[in-house]
Amino acid sequence: MLPGCFSVQNVVPQPDGDSSKVKVKVRVNIHGIFSVSNASLIEKQKGEGEDMQIESEPMAQNEGREEEQTKMQVDHEGQSLGDQQNEDSTKEGVSGEKQDQSAGGSKPKVKVKSLDLPIVANNIRQLDSDVLINFVELERQMISQDKLVKEVNDAKNAVEEYVYDLREKLCGIYQKYISKEDSIRLTLMLDDTENWLYEDGEDQPKQVYEEKLDALKRFVQPIQERHRETENRPRAFEELGKKLQLYLKFVDSYKKKDVSFVHLNPEDVSTVEKCVTESMAWMNNKMNAQSKLAITQDPVVKVADIIAKIQELEDVCDPVINKPKPTVEEPPDVNDCGAHNGPTPKQEAEGKDTKPGMKEMEVD
Results as ranks from 00 to 15, higher is better:
Asn86Asp: 04
Asn86His: 07
Asp88Ile: 07
Asp88Met: 15
Ser89Lys: 15
Ser89Asp: 08
Lys91Tyr: 01
Glu92Trp: 08
Gly93Val: 02
Gly93Met: 09
Gly93Asn: 10
Gly93Ser: 14
Gly93Thr: 10
Val94Thr: 03
Ser95Glu: 15
Ser95Met: 15
Gly96Arg: 07
Gly96Pro: 01
Glu97His: 07
Glu97Cys: 04
Glu97Gln: 06
Lys98Arg: 04
Lys98Thr: 05
Lys98Glu: 04
Asp100Ile: 11
Gln101Met: 10
Gln101Glu: 09
Ser102Asn: 12
Ala103Thr: 08
Ala103Ser: 12
Gly104His: 09
Gly105Lys: 14
Ser106Arg: 13
Ser106Phe: 12
Ser106Thr: 09
Ser106Ala: 10
Ser106Trp: 06
Ser106Met: 14
Lys107Asp: 04
Lys107Trp: 01
Pro108Ala: 05
Pro108Asp: 04
Lys109Met: 14
Lys109Ile: 08
Val110Ile: 13
Val110Lys: 14
Val110Glu: 10
Lys111Tyr: 05
Val112Arg: 06
Val112Ala: 04
Lys113Asn: 09
Leu115Glu: 05
Asp116Ala: 08
Leu117Lys: 02
Leu117Cys: 01
Leu117Gln: 02
Pro118Gln: 03
Ile119Ala: 06
Val120Gln: 10
Val120Arg: 09
Val120Ser: 08
Val120Pro: 00
Ala121Cys: 10
Ala121His: 11
Ala121Asp: 11
Ala121Tyr: 01
Asn122Pro: 00
Asn122Thr: 09
Ile124Phe: 08
Ile124Tyr: 11
Ile124Val: 13
Arg125Gly: 08
Gln126Ile: 10
Gln126Arg: 13
Leu127Gln: 06
Asp128Gly: 15
Ser129Gln: 13
Ser129Gly: 03
Asp130Lys: 14
Asp130Cys: 02
Val131Ile: 11
Leu132Gln: 15
Leu132Ser: 07
Ile133Cys: 03
Asn134Ala: 15
Phe135Asn: 12
Glu137Leu: 15
Glu137Phe: 07
Glu137Thr: 11
Leu138Arg: 13
Glu139Pro: 00
